[in-house]
Structures are given as C-alpha cells and as structure tokens.
Simulated assay, not measured.
Amino acid sequence: MQDAVEKTPPTSPLASPEPWDLVADAYAAELVPQFELFATDALRIAALPAGGRVIDVATGPGTLAMLAAKTGATVSAIDFSPTMIANLNRRAVEAGTAIDARLGDGQALPFADDTYDGAFSMFGLMFFPDRAKGLQEMRRVLRPGGRAVVSSWAPFDRPFALVMESVRAMLPNLPFGEGKAPLGDPSAFADEMTAAGFREVRIESVSHSSTASSLSECWSMIQRTTAPIVLLRHKLGEQTWDKVARGVFERLQGALGEGAVTLTFNAYLGRGVK
C-alpha cells in the first residue's frame, strides 16, 4: 500500500478543463503553426498506412487531427475542454475537413477495442491524473500492430525557465512550476509506455524554434498562451497579476535585454506498438 501511495503523482492544476478553456482561443489563433511542426513529427514517427483510422486524444486545438485528416485518414478526436472542441469543430468546418470531434475523457475513451491504426496524444496525456489509464486506453482502441505516439515537453531552457524562476521569485509562497515535468525523463517515459503494454517503445527528442521580435512581444505571447501562466493570472486577478507581470518582465529584461527572443521548444515523442 505504501508503494502505491508513493507512486501516485499529485494532481496537476492542468488536469482540469479550466486552464485549457482559458487558453483555447489563443492556442487556435497563435500556436497552431508551432504545434503543427510537432504533429508532423509524430505522424512521421508513426508511419501509418495511407487512409487509416486515427484517434487524437486530448486533442486541444486539434492540430494533429487536422493534419491527419488532410492526409486522407479517418479521424476521431476527443478532449475534456468544451472550448477546445468547439474551436476544433469550427476550424474543421472552415477547412472542409471531416473530423469526429467529441467532448470526453481520455482516461475512458468512448470507442471500441481494436479500432484505430494510430493513436496520438500531443502534450495532453502528460497531464492526466492517471497517465497509466490513459496509455492503456490508447492501446485498447488500437488494432493489433497499431502505433501510438505520445508527446511531452522536455525540461525548459531559456527563456521559459527564466519565466518560471521569475514567477516563483515574485510569488515565493505559491507552488509554481515545481517538481519534475510529467513524462519529462526519457527513461521513465519509456517505462510508462512499456508498463501499459506497448512493445518496441522508443523515445525521440525533437526541437523547433520561433523568434519574437522583442522581449515585450515574447512576454505578451507567453501570458496569452502558456496554460499555467494563464491559469495563475486568472486566479490572482488582473490587479495582482499586473504587479507580478511587471516584476517578471523586469527580471527577464535584465537577463535577456529588450531585443528579439528565440524560443526553442524541446519535446519527447514516445512511440509504441500494440
């Protein structure tokens, strides 16, 4: 019993729909081009047959779902954020793309066993309260020989690491960005996929970068699109957050200057076969 208690991770504040509803519009408007790079990597790693069936679990803005549908795949997508699903349905209609996008729980997929050729979760399953159950559900709905690809963020580099450090400095009594990132260690990541029943598990590191024209632009974007920051801002209220944001910006300015800022997004993509 003691071992079971010690292995149960604390529930992340990002394991509820609220922060994802808050960032849904900004994700769709600003982050889809960046997410498309990682979704393209995931589809490459999966190497699925043309015209297969794909499920995108914790689909968010539906980046992978949209790309897979454009290749001719039959696509299901699920997320627990009503706003994310509403935005995906809108984008799919605008693009003339057929996607079965549903509101639901990735830990209890409403789909039959042995249904899909590929199962994906792009930066979503990593926040599940029960990652083991999420991985088992992805495996369950895959056909024998089907492939799953799950992504997670690698430990942050500058400037994201500086942002987290600066917020913690401004709010020293508030737990923020502490502890090991979920699925942030490649060996542990592989172990979790293997424990869920996947075989031929491998973890690939991928990185993509973008450049903001100034530190001000970069910090504004982070405040709109980074879920833990957006949730913290919502919880604190605008008056308190304004003081925190000014303090964070001053710290970033001292370390980075006011010129262009290159953001490098480092991720792990875990692939497994049923």
Results as ranks from 00 to 15, higher is better:
Val75Arg: 05
Ser121Val: 05
Thr83Arg: 15
Glu165Val: 00
Phe156Glu: 12
Thr63His: 07
Glu94Thr: 12
Lys70Thr: 09
Leu67Tyr: 06
Leu109His: 06
Gly118Pro: 07
Lys133Ala: 15
Leu67Gly: 08
Val149Phe: 03
Ala86Asn: 06
Trp153Arg: 03
Gly72Cys: 07
Ala69Thr: 04
Asp105Gln: 11
Asp130Gly: 11
Val93Lys: 14
Asp105Ile: 10
Met170Leu: 08
Asp130Gln: 08
Phe176Glu: 00
Gly51Tyr: 09
Ala65Lys: 10
Gly146Ser: 10
Leu135Arg: 11
Gly106Tyr: 02
Ile55Gln: 12
Leu88Asp: 09
Ala98Trp: 01
Thr63Phe: 07
Leu125Met: 13
Arg91Ile: 01
Ser121Glu: 04
Gln136Trp: 00
Thr97Trp: 04
Glu94Phe: 06
Ala77Glu: 03
Ala108His: 11
Gly145Leu: 07
Asn87His: 13
Arg168Ile: 00
Arg143Asn: 05
Arg91Pro: 02
Thr71Tyr: 03
Thr59Ile: 06
Ile55Ser: 14
Ala73Thr: 01
Val93Leu: 11
Trp153Pro: 10
Ala68Ser: 10
Gly51Glu: 04
Asp117Gly: 14
Leu171Gln: 00
Ser121Leu: 08
Asp56Pro: 13
Asn173Ile: 01
Arg139Val: 09
Leu174Lys: 04
Ala169Ser: 14
Ile99Cys: 07
Ala58His: 05
Ser81Thr: 05
Ile99Phe: 06
Leu67Lys: 14
Leu142Thr: 10
Phe80Tyr: 13
Phe123Ala: 11
Tyr116Met: 12
Ala65Ser: 13
Phe176Lys: 01
Pro82Glu: 11
Asp105Val: 12
Leu171Pro: 00
Val75Ala: 11
Val141Arg: 13
Val75His: 08
Phe127Asp: 06
Ala132Met: 09
Gly62Thr: 07
Met170Ser: 08
Ala101Trp: 10
Arg91Cys: 04
Thr83Leu: 09
Gly62Met: 11
Ala161His: 06
Ala112Ile: 00
Ala98Ile: 05
Phe160Thr: 14
Ala95Pro: 06
Asp79His: 14
Gly124Thr: 02
Pro159Thr: 01
Gly106Arg: 07
Leu64Pro: 07
Met84Gly: 09
Ala68Met: 06
Pro110Glu: 06
Ala86Pro: 01
Gly104Glu: 02
Asp117Asn: 15
Gly60Met: 07
Ala95Trp: 01
Met122Thr: 11
Ala98Cys: 06
Gln136Pro: 01
Trp153Gly: 13
Ala161Arg: 12
Ala95Val: 02
Phe156Met: 14
Leu109Glu: 02
Val149Lys: 02
Pro61Tyr: 04
